[in-house]
Amino acid sequence: MRVVLALVVGLKGHNLTTDNFFTSYQLGQKLLEKQITLVGTIRKNKPELPPATVNIKGRPVLSSSFAFTRNTTIVSYIPKKNKSVNLLSTFHHDSKVSDRADKKPAIILDYNKCKGGVDTLDKAVSCYTCKRKTKRWPQVVFSNMVNITQPESSTGRKTTKRSRCQLCQKTDNKTGLVCDICNKFICKAAF
């Protein structure tokens, strides 16, 4: 909570989107005092979640369960059998559900619109990581910093099309990476 509050110093009238690592009821209330609203996924083990949103037994697929306080909304949505997604919002104050086939609540649709940057970074970091299992915290911090800066310095971009690497001698080496400079398919080994 302290990290988020330090990052929003000077902001007013914005909507903040967070993932389940940062989202909590207390953070939402602190941000409302600063006139900043919050939308974010929330972990199922948080004590502030009502039992009706955590317990999914007997609830049909594509159903939503809402819980309201004076200025906070919590929604539990079931996209698949035995799986639920919980979100907390201080921006939304109703139980509006879309007319689409998946019947997603408006809170989830707004969250999905705004979460792109975090997911893009997580996806890029997961492809190429320098993390190693260690108990030394400075090494963990350093490897995380390198992982976060690595996607910015990459010379290749991912495509949906796959082809053989044009720089390697191997004939079976298929890749989806394309060099930004020469526009040729390159594999991790040639990178």
Rank of each mutant, 00 (worst) to 15 (best):
S95L: 01
D94C: 08
S98N: 04
K96T: 09
V118W: 13
K104A: 06
S126G: 08
A101F: 11
D94S: 12
C114A: 15
D102L: 03
Y128W: 13
A106S: 10
F91Q: 05
G117K: 11
N112M: 06
D99M: 06
V118I: 15
D119L: 08
P105L: 01
A124V: 04
K113L: 11
D122L: 11
K103E: 06
C114F: 03
S98E: 07
T120W: 05
S98T: 14
L121N: 13
K96S: 02
I108T: 10
F91Y: 15
K113S: 08
G117N: 10
C114D: 07
D122C: 09
P105F: 00
C127V: 11
V97C: 00
A101I: 03
S126N: 10
D110T: 13
I108L: 13
D119G: 06
K113E: 12
D102Q: 12
S126T: 10
D122S: 12
D99K: 15
Y128N: 08
K115D: 01
R100C: 03
Y111G: 08
C127M: 09
A106N: 07
V125W: 13
G117D: 07
G117P: 12
C127W: 07
N112D: 04
I107P: 02
D102M: 04
N112P: 13
I108N: 09
R100I: 05
V97E: 00
D102P: 00
I107V: 15
Y111I: 12
D94G: 06
K103W: 08
S95W: 03
D110Q: 12
I108G: 07
S126W: 10
H92I: 03
H93P: 00
V125A: 15
F91C: 02
A124F: 02
N112T: 08
V125L: 02
N112W: 12
I108D: 05
D99F: 13
K104Q: 11
C114W: 00
C114I: 00
V97N: 01
V97T: 00
K113F: 09
A101C: 03
R100V: 11
K103M: 05
G116E: 02
V97Y: 00
C127N: 08
C127Y: 11
K123P: 02
A106L: 03
A106V: 14
C127T: 10
D94P: 01
R100W: 05
G117A: 04
K115T: 03
R100G: 04
H93N: 14
H93M: 06
K115Q: 11
D99Q: 13
L121K: 07
H93Y: 10
G117I: 09
K113M: 05
Y111A: 12
D122P: 01
K103F: 05
I108P: 06
K104C: 05
G116H: 07
K115R: 14
A124I: 00
L121W: 10
G117L: 07
S95M: 09
N112Q: 12
D119F: 10
K104N: 01
V118H: 11
D99H: 13
K115P: 07
L109A: 05
H92K: 10
A124Q: 12
T120L: 09
S98P: 01
S126E: 11
V125Q: 15
L109P: 07
D119H: 15
K113V: 10
S95G: 08
Y128V: 07
K123R: 14
K96E: 06
K113I: 14
I107K: 03
K115S: 04
K96M: 02
K123E: 10
G117S: 06
K104M: 08
A101S: 07
D119Q: 04
V118K: 10
K115N: 04
